[in-house]
Nucleic acid binder design. Structure first.
Length: 214
DNA sequence: ATATCGATTATCT
DNA sequence: GATAATCGATATG
């Protein structure tokens, strides 16, 4: 039953409006080919960052050395370093020249969990420990060994890359929406999308009443 | 369960 | 010089 067949997602999927891509990414799979081993995890929580008009988006600063991937062709990894401690992974969206990206906030581990745990520096004792592996944007990057120097700009639409996004036929259940987490500007917009009830979603266990089903 | 705080650095004002 | 799309530890109810 488990999905052994994972197909890359074509670039056209990412060449659409950020909000649309964000929603459609839920249920897809992030794949890491590390040596002979393959790490896979299902995307359960994302946030949309719009173009230069979105004050919360890095694109608001214009095209700089840091964020140029956002302005480039769709389907590429934008990795940035934050708080002097963590990396965060995004995928560029919209046609080339237009800014926009989706932030990966949480994953549900599928295969390669021992390798993820090692990368995170934790041990897996109970099934609940799986949650701390990839629940959070910084955590999932650590679990997948994603850094700016290594993965920024990588093409995520082909399995020739050591990091890519795939589709395994999984059908998402109910999708919920809430404001984005951890930002101060434009903090009210409902641009965070997640699989309702999924235990691997980051943040408080019980959602605020602002959360809406969609 | 919620709140607060320190870590640590690239980037921008 | 201030800030930041975070995390883990600690404190308190």
């Amino acid at each position: 039953m488990p999905s052994s067949r994972i197909q890359p997602i074509p670039r056209a999927f990412f060449a659409r409006k950020v909000k649309r891509v964000a929603r459609d990414l839920l249920g897809k799979v992030l794949v890491r080919q590390a040596g002979g081993e393959r790490l896979t995890a299902r995307i359960v929580e994302v946030e949309a960052y719009l173009g230069e008009k979105d004050p919360a988006a890095h694109a608001a600063a214009g095209n700089t050395a840091r964020n140029s991937v956002i302005f480039g062709p769709p389907g590429h990894a934008y990795v940035y370093f934050i708080y002097g401690n963590h990396y965060c992974l995004n995928v560029s969206c919209e046609p080339e020249g237009q800014a926009g990206c989706v932030l990966f906030r949480a994953l549900e581990p599928l295969t390669g969990t021992e390798r993820m745990a090692k990368a995170r520096g934790i041990e897996l004792h109970s099934p609940k420990d799986l949650i701390r592996l990839t629940s959070g944007p910084g955590r999932l990057c650590a679990a997948f060994c994603i850094t700016r120097s290594g993965e920024n700009g990588m093409d995520l639409t082909t399995d020739k890359s050591s990091l890519w996004i795939g589709e395994d036929g999984y059908k998402s259940g109910q999708i919920a929406v809430s404001p984005r987490i951890g930002i101060t500007k434009a903090a009210e917009h409902p641009l965070r999308y997640f699989l309702a009830g999924n235990p691997f979603v980051s943040g408080p266990k019980f959602r605020a009443p602002l959360d809406k089903r969609v």
